[in-house]
C-alpha cells in the first residue's frame, strides 16, 4: 500500500516484459477494433469532408455545424445509442451483434466519422481557393480538380485520420457499453484498465496504459513518416 509511484511504475514495466497471451489478445483486439473503425469511417468521411469543403452554401454550413457538434459526442452516448439499436429489444436485435467486436467497431465508427469529416472539410477549405481554381483554369474537370485538392490537402487529411484513431483507441465508454468487456472476446486495453483498476490491480492497469501510449507513439510515428515524404 505504501509503495511509491515509482515502485508501481517499475512493477508495471516488469508486467509488460512478462507479455502473456492474454495481454497479446487484448492489445490485438484494441488495434483491430479501432483500426477497422477508423478505416471504415475514413472511407466515408474523406469523400464527405471533401464534398462539404468544396461546396459553400447555406445548407452546407448548417451540416458543418452539426458535424462540429458531433465531434464532441461523448463515447458513452455513442455506446448507449448503439446498445439500444443492437439490443434484443431494439430494432437491429435480430442481427445478434451486441457483445461482439462488430458492435464495438460500429460504435467507434460513430465517434471517428465526425472527427475525420470535420477535419477533412477544414483541410479542403484551406486549400480550395488557390488549387481548385488553378486546376480548373488548366482545363481540369470538377472531379479532377477535387482530386488535386485532396492530394494537396493529404497531410492534413492524414492528421485527421490520426486524430480519429487517437480518439477511438483511447475511449472506454462506448466499447464497454456494447462490447461488455468479455474476457477473450471483447476485452480491449481501455476496458481491461477499468477492470484492473476496479479490482485494485493498479500495476496491471498502469502497464496497460503504458502499452497504449507506446502503441499510439508507434502509429503516430509511422503516419508522420508518410506525411513527411514530401520533405525528403
Amino acid at each position: 500500500m505504501n509503495e511509491g509511484f515509482l515502485n508501481n511504475l517499475w512493477n508495471a514495466l516488469q508486467l509488460i516484459l512478462a507479455w502473456d497471451t492474454e495481454l497479446v489478445r487484448i492489445v490485438g483486439l484494441s488495434l483491430f477494433v479501432s483500426g477497422a473503425a477508423v478505416l471504415i469511417a475514413a472511407l466515408f468521411a474523406i469523400p464527405l469532408g471533401t464534398f462539404l469543403g468544396l461546396k459553400n452554401s447555406k445548407w452546407v454550413r448548417y451540416i458543418s455545424k452539426i458535424i462540429y457538434t458531433f465531434m464532441g459526442l461523448p463515447p458513452v452516448v455513442a455506446g448507449l445509442v448503439v446498445f439500444l439499436l443492437l439490443s434484443k429489444s431494439g430494432p437491429l436485435g435480430i442481427l445478434e451483434l451486441l457483445w461482439t467486436p462488430w458492435a464495438m467497431i460500429i460504435a467507434q465508427v460513430m465517434l471517428a466519422l465526425p472527427i475525420i469529416t470535420g477535419l477533412t472539410m477544414t483541410a479542403i477549405k484551406s486549400k480550395d481557393q488557390a488549387i481548385g481554381k488553378t486546376a480548373l483554369t488548366l482545363g481540369a474537370s470538377k472531379y479532377q480538380a477535387a482530386l488535386a485538392v485532396i492530394r494537396e490537402a493529404r497531410i492534413a487529411i492524414i492528421s485527421a485520420i490520426v486524430a480519429g484513431l487517437g480518439r477511438v483507441i483511447a475511449e472506454v465508454g462506448a466499447v464497454m457499453m456494447v462490447g461488455g468487456n468479455i474476457q477473450g472476446k471483447t476485452r480491449v486495453m481501455t476496458t481491461a484498465i477499468v477492470l484492473e483498476t476496479r479490482k485494485g490491480n493498479f500495476e496491471m492497469a498502469l502497464s496497460l496504459g503504458i502499452i497504449l501510449l507506446v502503441l499510439a507513439f508507434i502509429i503516430n510515428s509511422i503516419l508522420m513518416t508518410i506525411q513527411g515524404e514530401k520533405d525528403y
Binding site: 483491430f32 483500426g35 477497422a36 478505416l39 471504415i40 475514413a42 472511407l43 461482439t100 467486436p101 462488430w102 467497431i105
Partner: peptide
C-alpha cells in the same frame, strides 16, 4: 489503405 481494409475484413470474418 484499401488493401489493409480487405485484410481487416478477413480477420473479422475469422473472428466471426
Amino acid at each position: 489503405t484499401v488493401l489493409m481494409l480487405v485484410v481487416m475484413m478477413f480477420i473479422a470474418l475469422a473472428f466471426g
